[in-house]
Design a protein around this nucleic acid. Structure first.
Length: 345
DNA sequence: AACTCGGGGAC
DNA sequence: GTCCCAGAGTT
């Protein structure tokens, strides 16, 4: 039996019933694929339901303000996905009459839709024989065919895409593509796959050569940066506070946060007093109190954010502030959301 | 080709 | 602590 036929048989037997598996609606498939980029199914699924409920159609999504899209996306990470999601919805409505492109090349031109996602939508919605190559597929192919090229190298990326194209089932591309990803997620798992009862074990190069543990090969990660954040939590006599929107490049673009002072190391009280001289509200303070004695270390992929929250009581009322109970309506990073949850005025 | 961009779960 | 997740975009 062929590789692809074994994958298809396994999939038929073991596939999970997922909410986007029962439709060919390009809007729903596209939404699910964007949500699931670098995201586990269990983490993304609640967001899929939230978005479908808030925006049943691409027109609804396109008509929404970006802030509402970001608020719904809050907690899922990689927020450029949400911004691109919204931009693409607007483009589909404005330029394409509300219809998604029905070709691989057309789909790839959408913001946030790259090689993988274009192949996924094309195959799942339109039965176009394009192979998907996600993290699961890299793992399955590298093990079964014993490929040692790094999956995140230029040569590796090209090689695996060609290999995936050679072994795919063009007649059942919709099920095959989802099948090989599901197989990688459940059977050919990253750690301790149960090869003993794997239906592909006899032809698996990695298993036969005892290389399962060392495949796939991946190039080294870039190293960690440490940053020191000091958030200024203003609370005036009216229970108003100040927030601002992150602009420009970097993390959390377009999300909200408290005014931020970034320092080169952990800041003490004196340092903050000096820093505050530069702020319009920082010169006349009734009090400046550090909320968390031990810095909170918020961990991102490539950065650790050592964070202190400073509670400021200004002598005068804040202008351009918001009342504290409005704060929940803004999209904020998890770091800020966690603080808001624990801090009671 | 290397870097950036989040958060969470499994181990 | 480490690794990885239905990757894409920028430099």
């Amino acid at each position: 039996m062929s590789f692809s036929q074994k994958v298809l048989n396994w999939y038929k037997e073991h596939k999970r019933e997922l909410p986007w598996r029962s439709t060919r609606d390009p809007y729903k498939i596209w939404l699910s694929e964007i949500i699931l980029q670098q995201t586990r199914v269990v983490q993304g699924t609640p967001y899929y339901f939230k978005f479908i409920e808030a925006f049943p159609t691409v027109q609804d999504l396109a008509a929404a303000p970006e802030e509402k899209v970001l608020k719904l996306w809050q907690g899922l990470g990689y927020y450029s996905r949400a911004r691109n999601l919204h931009a693409t919805a607007k483009m589909v409505v404005k330029d394409f009459g509300g219809e998604f492109p029905n070709s691989y090349e057309g789909l790839k031109q959408l913001k946030g839709v790259g090689d993988y996602t274009a192949s996924a939508i094309a195959s799942i919605c339109f039965d176009i024989p394009e192979p998907v190559v996600d993290g699961n597929v890299y793992r399955v192919l590298s093990r079964y065919f014993g490929v040692e090229l790094p999956i995140n190298s230029t040569k590796g990326t090209k090689y695996f895409k060609e290999l995936a194209r050679e072994v795919m089932d063009t007649k059942n591309i919709r099920d095959y593509n989802q099948g090989i990803m599901e197989f990688g997620a459940i059977q050919c798992a990253p750690k301790k796959p149960y090869c003993l009862l794997c239906p592909l074990n006899d032809g698996c190069a990695a298993l036969n050569e005892n290389r399962v543990k060392s495949l796939p090969v991946k190039l080294g990660k870039t190293k960690l940066k440490h940053r020191y954040f000091n958030y200024l939590v203003l609370v005036d006599a009216n229970q108003n506070t100040l927030i601002e929107q992150r602009k420009g490049k970097g993390i959390w673009q377009n999300l909200y946060q408290f005014p931020l002072v970034e320092t080169g190391s952990i800041a003490d009280h004196d340092t903050m007093v000096k820093e505050l001289q530069q702020k319009p509200y920082g010169k006349n303070l009734e009090s400046l109190v550090l909320f968390n004695e031990e810095p909170i270390v918020h961990k991102l992929s490539h950065q650790h954010l050592h964070t202190q929250f400073w509670i400021l009581k200004p002598s005068e009322k804040i202008k351009d502030g918001i009342s504290w109970d409005q704060i929940g309506s803004f999209a904020v990073p998890v770091l800020i959301a966690d603080f808001i949850r624990t801090f009671k005025i």
